[in-house]
Amino acid sequence: MIRSRTSNVKPDIIEEIGYLRGFGVLAVIAIHTTGYFTEVKQFNSLVLVNLWVDIFSQFAVPLFILISGVVLAKNYRESFALKEFYRKRVRSIIPQYLLFSILYTAFNNWDIMKNSALDTNFALLLNSIWLADASYHLWFFSIIIQFYILYPLIIRIYSLFKQRNRAELLLVLMLMIQTFFMAGLHTSYLSGTKINFMGFLFYFCLGIYTWDHFDSFKRKFTLPKSFLFIMSIALTLGTSFFIIIGLTTGYRYDSIPAYFFIGPELIYPVLRVISFLFLFNVSMSFLGKRRSILAKVIKRIGDYSFGIYLIHIFFNQSAIKILKNYQIDFDSWTFYPIVFAVTIILSYLSIRLVSFLPFSYYLVGSQSRNRS
Rank of each mutant, 00 (worst) to 15 (best):
S7C: 11
K10L: 15
I14R: 02
E15R: 10
L20Q: 12
V25R: 02
I31D: 08
H32R: 05
T34D: 11
V47M: 05
V47F: 07
W52D: 10
P62W: 08
I65V: 15
L66M: 15
L66G: 06
S68A: 15
V71Q: 03
L72M: 12
K74I: 06
R77V: 01
R77M: 07
E78D: 14
S79I: 08
L82P: 00
R87T: 13
R89H: 07
P95W: 00
L99P: 05
F100C: 05
I102A: 12
N109W: 04
I112Y: 10
K114V: 14
N115A: 12
F122I: 11
F122Y: 02
L124Q: 08
A132V: 04
A132N: 07
F141T: 00
F147G: 09
Y148R: 00
Y151V: 06
Y151P: 02
P152N: 01
L153S: 04
L160A: 11
L160M: 12
M176F: 14
M182I: 12
G184E: 03
L185N: 11
Y189T: 13
G192A: 11
G192S: 09
I195F: 13
M198V: 14
G199E: 01
F200C: 11
Y203I: 13
Y203T: 10
L206T: 12
H213P: 02
F214C: 02
D215I: 08
F217M: 06
R219P: 06
F221P: 00
P224W: 02
S226E: 14
L228R: 03
F229R: 04
M231W: 06
L235I: 05
T249N: 12
Y253F: 15
D254L: 06
D254W: 01
I267P: 03
Y268V: 14
L271S: 12
F276C: 07
F280Y: 14
N281S: 14
G288S: 12
K289H: 14
R291A: 13
I293M: 15
L294F: 15
L294P: 00
S305Y: 04
S305I: 04
G307A: 08
I311Y: 01
H312D: 09
F315N: 01
I320L: 06
K324M: 13
N325W: 03
N325C: 06
Y326C: 05
I328Q: 10
T334G: 00
F335Q: 06
Y336S: 06
F340M: 13
T343P: 01
I344H: 02
I351D: 01
R352G: 01
V354C: 09
Y361L: 08
L363G: 00
G365K: 06
S368F: 01
